[in-house]
Design a protein around this nucleic acid. Structure first.
Length: 359
DNA sequence: GACGCGTGGCC
DNA sequence: TGGCCAAGCGT
């Protein structure tokens, strides 16, 4: 019987996904070489984010900024505007920082060894290994959520995550070949994404079902075992959509770090857990006829936000405290996170009616 | 090691 | 429908 590694690479040759940032085995045989810039960009975007969500952003970014030097020449605000909607905005801030370093200190060439890669902003254990493996053929263990699931099932590891991570990494390192380590890593991730899925895995067509200890238990879905998660608190607040007589709305910049750091917002109260369930308008950005116009709910990773939306129409004086006014039809050019688009849409239902993915 | 950090799709 | 999940990182 062939080893697991061999089976998976053969399976990858026959069944790999076609992705905008991927050089397939057949393309490589025709001389195509992986571009570390595109591998890096895709890996940053793919952190905790689905392939389908990433594709349009990846295409927009590479069209706008074909090289790391071009990305380094952009402003952080340009990058945040292009990233708006993709989430985890510290990734975009670190993306720009990393591009600056690679462009200026590394002469535009990404380092190929994992310690050097890990030293760059936004690149941790997983991403350093992925770039070293996929772009530079280094035989390092690439461990993401897919690999954790595949490995814990192959070996029926019952230790809960994250405690099991060292054991998972050791198993992955032992499987990783010196020939085509990048294709092997991508084979593990494609297997996890398409066959060895969290729910209802397709074990019947899995190329390594003979090797799977979890399948032998009869309940492969029970792997990986995870530590219980905490419940989400609810936070409350109010947001203020000011509309001028010229059909502009008032935006502000959020603080550079923390939640939605550097992104745009409409004025808002603090978001606090309160037992009275009420919000007040004494924190409005300027005096106006603030009218309740709806409520929105938005679920972040670690809390649920319920915002009461207030609207004021026909403001002529255009007062403000350090923000700016934007025509409603130009709102899509701003670095507005989804929660703020929801808040604005509560006051102006057709503000974002045209589907705006990136660009 | 635990926590802060977005968003959209799925059942 | 709401809880779960998706190619994690920084502190």
């Amino acid at each position: 019987m062939q080893p697991i590694t061999t089976k998976l690479v053969k399976w990858y040759d026959a069944h790999h996904r076609i992705l905008p940032w991927r050089i397939s085995p057949s393309e490589r045989s025709q001389g195509k070489i992986a571009d570390p810039y595109r591998i890096w960009l895709s890996e940053i975007m793919l952190q905790q984010t689905t392939v389908e969500a990433v594709k349009p952003y990846f295409n927009a970014f590479t069209k706008k900024w074909p090289t790391v030097a071009r990305l380094a020449a952009a402003s952080q605000d340009d990058v945040l505007r292009a990233w708006a909607g993709l989430g985890y905005y510290s990734r975009a801030r670190n993306l720009k920082k990393c591009a600056d370093i690679v462009s200026n200190l590394y002469d535009g060439r990404f380092p190929s060894e994992t310690p050097d890669l890990k030293a760059l902003p936004g690149i941790g254990d997983y991403t350093a290994a992925a770039i070293a493996s996929i772009a530079f053929d280094r035989p390092v263990a690439v461990v993401d959520g897919n690999v954790e699931r595949v490995i814990t099932r192959l070996y029926a590891i019952t230790t809960p995550l994250p405690s099991a991570k060292p054991a998972i990494r050791a198993k992955m390192q032992a499987l990783t070949p010196s020939e085509r380590p990048g294709d092997f890593a991508q084979a593990m991730m494609d297997l996890g994404a398409g066959i060895c899925t969290p729910k209802r895995p397709a074990c019947i067509i899995c190329p390594v079902n003979d090797n799977c200890q979890a399948l032998k238990t009869g309940e492969p879905e029970l792997f990986p075992v995870k530590a219980p998660k905490k419940d989400k608190p609810v936070r409350l607040g109010a947001a203020f959509v000011a509309i001028s007589s010229d059909n502009e709305i008032y935006l502000q910049s959020r603080a550079e770090t923390g939640l939605l750091g550097g992104m745009a917002q409409v004025p808002t109260t603090a978001w606090t857990a309160r037992i009275d369930g009420d919000t007040r308008i004494d924190a409005a950005p300027f005096p106006a006829d603030w009218t309740p116009t709806g409520k929105i709910t938005h679920v972040f990773t670690h809390f649920e936000l319920r915002l009461s939306i207030y609207k004021a129409d026909g403001i002529a004086a255009r007062p403000g405290v350090g923000g700016w006014w934007v025509k409603v039809e130009n709102l899509h050019q701003e670095a507005l996170p989804t929660v703020m688009k929801k808040a604005i849409a509560a006051a102006i239902p057709d503000a974002f009616t045209k589907r705006r993915k990136p660009e």
